[in-house]
Design a protein around this nucleic acid. Sequence first.
DNA 1: ACCTGAACACCGTTCAAGT
DNA 2: ACCTGAACACCGTTCAAGT
Lengths: 182, 182
Amino acid sequence: MTPRRRPLDRQQIIDATLELADSQGLAAVSMRTIAGRLGVTPMALYRHVTDKRELLDGLVERLLLELPIPDRELPWEQRLRELAVGLRLIASRHPDVFLLLFARPAFTPAAVRPRDAVYDALRDAGIAEELVPRAERLLSTLVLGYAASEAGGRFSADESVRAGEEFEWAQELVFEQIRRLS
Amino acid sequence: MTPRRRPLDRQQIIDATLELADSQGLAAVSMRTIAGRLGVTPMALYRHVTDKRELLDGLVERLLLELPIPDRELPWEQRLRELAVGLRLIASRHPDVFLLLFARPAFTPAAVRPRDAVYDALRDAGIAEELVPRAERLLSTLVLGYAASEAGGRFSADESVRAGEEFEWAQELVFEQIRRLS
DNA sequence: ACCTGAACACCGTTCAAGT
DNA sequence: ACCTGAACACCGTTCAAGT
């Protein structure tokens, strides 16, 4: 047996798991198949992740880290649009894992950056400070809902073709109301 | 062994599965535990459901059948509010199974009744016929998103306390836009 | 420190057999 | 027609052992 160059680490395991989930589906993800991909026995994984559940948590965190945060100098509408586009792109790249977002709390470290970016945009839009968190939850729930519907297959194939355009229509309706609240 | 009174049927299996998912979580649902609850061997289930995936599909259908359809004589806003309340109630009763809604197509038989009810309400609100389907998808995605966030634990415990009120706030914003489109 | 072998208590599903 | 027994190819995870 050729010895492994780098010893195993958590990041490698998460990367391998994401690749597997994207190519074969979440159902194909097992500690044993992940280990197989890494050329290691299943038990070797347990030195780096506490168990499978915690590994899936790490996967979701990783997804959120892929989201680019727009430049603060841009107009607030554009920043919100770019965040939404980024999230929908993540959903299309990682459809199975994306659905796990609903089952994980939105206040993990990786979730803080996107949320703060939305807070900033809403403040720059001029809405009252006490409305900022609920407006953020409206926007994040809306984009997550559309992205999950599309990624999970709730919308028909025909609807999915237009889902981007349709989400943007819904988004503009909400922007309209945000301007009204300002 | 005492002989089973009624022979097993699909409905019994789905009921037992839903009970199990609600009380022990979706992770505890296995063909073997379901069979155990019904006093039968796992293999007996396969005469009535084709496999586990198809059984979970049946579970989601069953959830949608729980949704009461409001009286057509009521004002359109009230009908939409009642549908939303009903769906959020289903989510709170069956949090684990509810998340599966995003992964199942929205055009199954059981999904037709609630969607038609929303179509009717939107038409009565007076919005243009070609906007009806996308407005329905906006509303259903919004309510599904809020309900799933709450049921799945995306919102913090503190947020969940207010989630009902907060969803209604978001819903009224959308109603405002629907009136504007009319 | 990092990985393995063997083992335990589970899975979904098929197939031939029983009544 | 409806259910079972035995079997197959899997799971997650623990623990003692190897290097």
